[in-house]
Design a protein around this nucleic acid. Structure first.
Length: 496
RNA sequence: GGUGGCGUCGCCAAGUCCGGUAAGGCAACGGCCUGCAAAGCCGUCAUUCGGCGGUUCGAAUCCGCCCGCCACCUCCA
């Protein structure tokens, strides 16, 4: 690990700050997780992929990352949906927790160290409320407990929203429940009998939303920790309230660095069911999109910028991923061949490109996770590498090619887009073994690829072309490579 | 009304904090390679960064004004 940490944009100071963890090399990260009332959508996954990039990058950078992501498994929407569906809250939550984990796996998001659930930390939340009541930071109204925002002097430090300037919405007006100040928020909600509730000294009820993150982060890390992640929409009021209730209870600085990921929009507009532009990962997958292309698109735009998710952007991401994989594959092939005498010119050229890429890629990510910039530097190496691999009979030195491969593997520890499922088929034809490989397809189609190699060997180009057209019909493109053809899937990216 | 952000090549998108004369990807076009392709390579592709002023030897980057777009504003990542 280099001694100087990366610079990250801290929402608190609104500037880039050098990361200085409380107890290096450990970095404690708490990331707001999903409320499990529905299938996660692609916007959720932009955020989850980003938390993964933070996780993987800091790990790559030598930190010992301790990532905790909560699961909100009790809230108004969950209760509502469970009732509609006629299932228990637990079953509903369980179903969407599974969907969430499936999505993480699809997008190659590393598991967090733990996924604490709100319903498993009710006791800690009750303790926290009692502490706040004792310190006069909270008050009870008919079984509801509210946090008294006026009692916390620094309220608003994160988002700089001034109470008088806030737009009054119906939601605020309709949700008073006897609050003394509109800014006050529920720590504990008295609930009608019949709805799920937990016993507490101030009456049966269930916890307010903001409380769980304070309670669970404290359970994991104590009163103060390094880095708190969340979506842009959570800064206010969720995180503002977390700070207020946590610091009021502990008198400690709750979090050193806050980072927020900007939202994703679809075709230039906010994703919403009424606009018909609501996309879930499961739908995108079912439509035949490469998960790596989705991941690439989600991480290729700087996290503090809105990302416009379109079919065209997805296609472009797919093309970019194909290029990376193709170059990596060519490199592996060359390393395996080990033929030709190393050319000093090629070696020198590639060496320079590698060193530059190593330096610039890391520098870009160090500068507030500039993934777009980092990818730009990566592609400069890709071009040089391809050019050098094209110099037939004058390969770069083997050790250097191995070093380049090692570096590509290393950065893929962050990007996680190189790996692609493949299948291979072969056939004995006369005295030669014919081979073909590509992404998994139907065996009979793979057979046609082999038939085509035979046709080409026999110079029956008419048949070869017919077979190629036939395969193209079903979305498979064949690339000739002597007796070992490759195929790839034509870009089938479409979102729905 | 308040807060945050954005407007850079046909499309996507860095660069703006720390001013020095426009990364990268996709697409397109010409060439090499190929039986033909694909992939890859070589070359072409923004005298210009929403507009207008200002500061400066020099501005996409700093300052002012204006235009347009997006998001958030009390339980949506």
């Amino acid at each position: 690990m280099s001694t100087i940490g990366p610079r990250l944009h801290n929402t608190l100071s609104r500037t880039r700050e050098t990361l200085e963890p409380i107890a290096p090399p450990r970095v404690q990260i708490y990331a707001c997780g999903p409320t499990v009332y529905d299938h996660p959508h692609i916007g959720n996954f932009r955020y989850f992929v980003w938390t993964d990039v933070v996780h993987r990058f800091l790990q790559w950078r030598g930190y010992d990352v301790d990532l905790v992501m909560n699961l909100t498994d009790i809230d108004d929407k969950i209760i509502e949906r469970a009732e509609q569906a006629g299932v228990s809250i637990g079953d509903l939550a369980e179903k969407f927790i599974r969907a969430f984990h499936d999505g993480l796996e699809t997008l190659r998001i590393l598991p967090a160290a733990s996924y604490p659930r709100a319903t498993e930390h009710i006791a800690e939340m009750v303790d926290l409320i009692e502490k706040l009541l004792t310190r006069d930071h909270a008050y009870v109204v008919e079984g509801n407990v509210f946090f008294r925002v006026a009692s916390f002097e620094d309220y608003g430090q994160l988002t700089h929203l001034v109470a008088d300037e806030l737009q009054t919405t119906d939601r605020v007006q309709g949700d008073e429940f006897g609050k003394r100040d509109p800014r006050d928020f529920a720590l504990w909600k008295a609930v009608p009998p019949g709805e799920p509730n937990w016993d507490a000294p101030f009456g049966a009820g269930r916890p307010g939303w903001h409380l769980e993150c304070s309670a669970m982060s404290m359970a994991a890390f104590g009163g103060t920790f390094d880095l708190h992640l969340g979506g842009a929409d959570l800064a206010f009021p969720h995180h503002e309230n977390e700070i207020a209730q946590s610091e009021s209870a502990t008198n400690e600085t709750f979090v050193k660095y806050w980072m927020h990921c900007q939202h994703l929009i679809v075709d230039g507009a906010k994703m919403s069911k009424s606009l018909g532009n609501f996309k879930t990962l499961a739908e995108l997958e079912a439509a035949g999109n490469d998960p790596a292309a989705i991941r690439y698109l989600l991480l290729s735009v700087h996290y503090r910028r809105q990302l416009n998710f379109t079919d065209e952007a997805l296609e472009q991401a797919h093309a970019a991923v194909q290029r990376l994989r193709e170059t990596y594959r060519r490199l592996e092939e060359r390393i395996a061949e080990r033929r030709g005498e190393a050319s000093p010119t090629a070696t020198e050229r590639l060496e320079r490109a590698l060193h530059q890429a190593e330096r610039d890629f890391a520098a870009a990510l160090d500068d507030d996770l500039n993934t777009s910039g980092a990818l730009g530097h990566l592609f400069l190496l890709v071009r040089e590498l391809n050019a050098v691999l094209d110099l037939d009979g004058e390969p770069p030195g083997l050790d250097l090619m191995i070093a380049v491969r090692a570096w590509l593997r290393s950065i893929d520890e962050i990007l996680a887009v190189f790996e692609a499922p493949t299948m291979s088929v072969s056939r004995q034809h006369e005295d030669t073994e014919l081979q073909a490989s590509g992404p998994p397809i139907d065996a009979t189609l793979a057979d046609l690829v082999l038939d085509r190699i035979v046709a080409r060997r026999e110079k029956d180009f008419g048949l070869a072309d017919t077979l190629r057209d036939q395969l193209k019909e079903v979305g498979i493109e064949v690339e000739d490579a002597g007796d070992a053809a490759r195929w790839k899937l034509l870009t089938t990216t479409r979102s729905t």
